[in-house]
Amino acid sequence: MSLLEASEIVSGYGDIEILHGVSLSVGRGEMVAVIGPNGCGKSTLMKTIFGLLTPTGGRVTFKDTDITGMPPHEIVCQGLSYVPQADNTFLSLTVQENLAMGAFLRPDIYAVQAEMAYGLFPDLKARRNAKVSSLSGGQRQMVAMARALMLEPQLLLLDEPTAGLAPVFVEAVFAQIAHVNSQGIAVLMVEQNARLALEHAQRGYVLASGENRFTGESSALLANEEVARLYLGGAA
């Protein structure tokens, strides 16, 4: 049985429809990648799942609870967490305050979860009282992920976690994501770095023009000639 189930999602901004009926599912503890060209609706899908956009059609269920149209502050209580692509930290707050905001709904578990986060991202511990605006891009991405992990989510949504990072950091971020996943937290990630994303994920979805194009095991997608030629920048 799947943890997250999105079926036939129709969504967009105002009158502009971006997704024309996209479906996907994520199982417990699974890592799933969504890839596709720019503007295919990857970020729109994430925002719709998390309640920042209200779908005009379709249904999102999480652990059998219908979360379609639920506001984000209620969705986060269900055990989902979301790291947006841009503006994913509170820049004017300190690292520690960012983590505290991540645990806003559960101050009782803040201390334990903060220690867990600092264990996962040791770089952050030394800079816990620094404002996030003074941190490097890679460190900010760690803060963003740490904030999202504070409520012990069962599913982490990551929107382009490596966007704008220097190549040296890209592998490190993927390693961190894999580590998070290894602790039993399911991951649904949208990635530009399609090949790397599929290499880390168990399954993948290829979106094009707001519709499902290919779906399957990562290894099958990586081996698929057409996927490789169109979306992975080269032969399989």
Binding site: F50, L52, V76, C77, L151
Partner: peptide
């Protein structure tokens, strides 16, 4: 937006 995502 991030505040809402964080549960605020």
């Amino acid at each position: 937006d991030l505040a809402r995502i964080s549960g605020i």
